[in-house]
Design a protein around this nucleic acid. Structure first.
Length: 298
DNA sequence: GTAACTGTGTGGCGTGCGTT
DNA sequence: AACGCACGCCACACAGTTAC
């Protein structure tokens, strides 16, 4: 049987990055934390923390921390559904996978509509965020996967609309005769990371062929917009982020009539269902207000 | 039979000091 | 400065003993 006093020490060290801060967090001395970690490592038979600044969890340590988080969520969920149990005043931390563009546009307003929850967000591409749920590393995800992950409920959120945008100067230099295949092969394109396929998909839709333009790698939603504004390249930007720039002509759409709508889904673990009720409402509400309705819902 | 008391073992913690 | 180790203290659980 796992000793949760020891595990909570492990989780505190990993969360705070040091034995000292973990001790403050647990209201004990650093020595007590050190002894708990040592005992846990002896019992498990493996090193759980790489001592340093900051202290980091080993792979096994990480797995144990995730287990502690899940147990905490289950307990909080149980307390909510059994009114007889004493209420725990500590806020619950929810680990959620979300794509960067959702975070930069509509997800924070959803988070702000909840009360008494703490968030631990994991950033990943919308095509890969569901993998975090499958691995049990998050309790919910914003994903492009519409098929429910095992043990999860799935809600359609609508679509995040992307517009292929660039600065007027960039368009004048690289597309003087309009947007065509030959120019698209030469014009530098902005790409978020190696998982980002939006540009490829949109180019295929726009030109009917696969094109590999020269790439700038920019793993930040805001830097993506800034780079487009600076004339560094063209990129698929969320309409919500560039609406004002398009209106003021600081950015222009490469082909105004061809947005790319990426359908998004909210998948959340059923096992901590009661705990997520507030967040579910907030997410669906924010999505309804801020995202583009999917064709089936429109 | 039961309650109260006592002795012992164990676990957890803090202090002080050494090590890196 | 941060962490680990040795040591001692304290609280608690449990078993054995005694008194009623």
């Amino acid at each position: 049987m796992l000793d949760y006093a020891l595990l909570s020490a492990l989780a505190a060290v990993v969360r705070t990055g040091s034995f000292e801060q973990a001790a403050q967090h647990l209201n004990v001395t650093p020595s007590a934390v050190s002894q708990r970690i040592k005992l846990l490592e002896e019992r498990i038979g493996a090193v759980l923390i790489v001592r340093g600044q900051p202290c980091l969890a080993t792979e096994i340590g990480e797995r144990l921390c995730r287990h502690v988080d899940q147990v905490a969520l289950l307990e909080a969920s149980l307390r909510q559904s059994l009114p007889g149990l004493q209420h725990d005043e500590r806020p619950v931390t929810l680990r959620i996978a979300v794509n960067a563009d959702s975070l930069a546009t509509w997800f924070i307003p959803a988070m702000a509509q909840t009360d008494g929850l703490l968030f631990d967000l994991v950033l990943d591409d919308q095509d890969h965020s569901a993998d975090w749920l499958r691995r049990g590393e998050v309790v919910a995800a914003v994903t492009s996967h519409g098929e429910p992950v095992q043990g999860c409920n799935c809600h359609s959120l609508g679509s995040l609309r992307y517009i292929a945008t660039a600065s007027p100067g960039f368009v004048e230099r690289w597309f003087p005769d309009g947007f065509d295949e030959a120019a698209a092969r030469r014009a530098p394109c902005l790409i978020f990371n190696r998982k980002d396929r939006l540009q490829t998909i949109w180019l295929k839709e726009a030109l009917g062929t696969e094109i590999r333009p020269p790439l700038h790698w920019l793993p930040s939603s805001q830097a993506f917009v800034d780079a487009a504004l600076a004339g560094l390249g063209w990129g698929m930007n969320p309409e919500m982020l560039v609406r004002e720039d398009l209106r003021e002509r600081r950015l222009v759409a490469l082909t105004p009539s061809l947005p790319l709508d990426v359908p998004l889904f909210w998948q959340q673990s059923r096992i901590v269902g009661p705990l997520l009720a507030d967040l579910n409402r907030a997410v669906l509400n924010a999505a309804r207000t801020l995202l583009t309705p999917s064709p089936a819902e429109a």
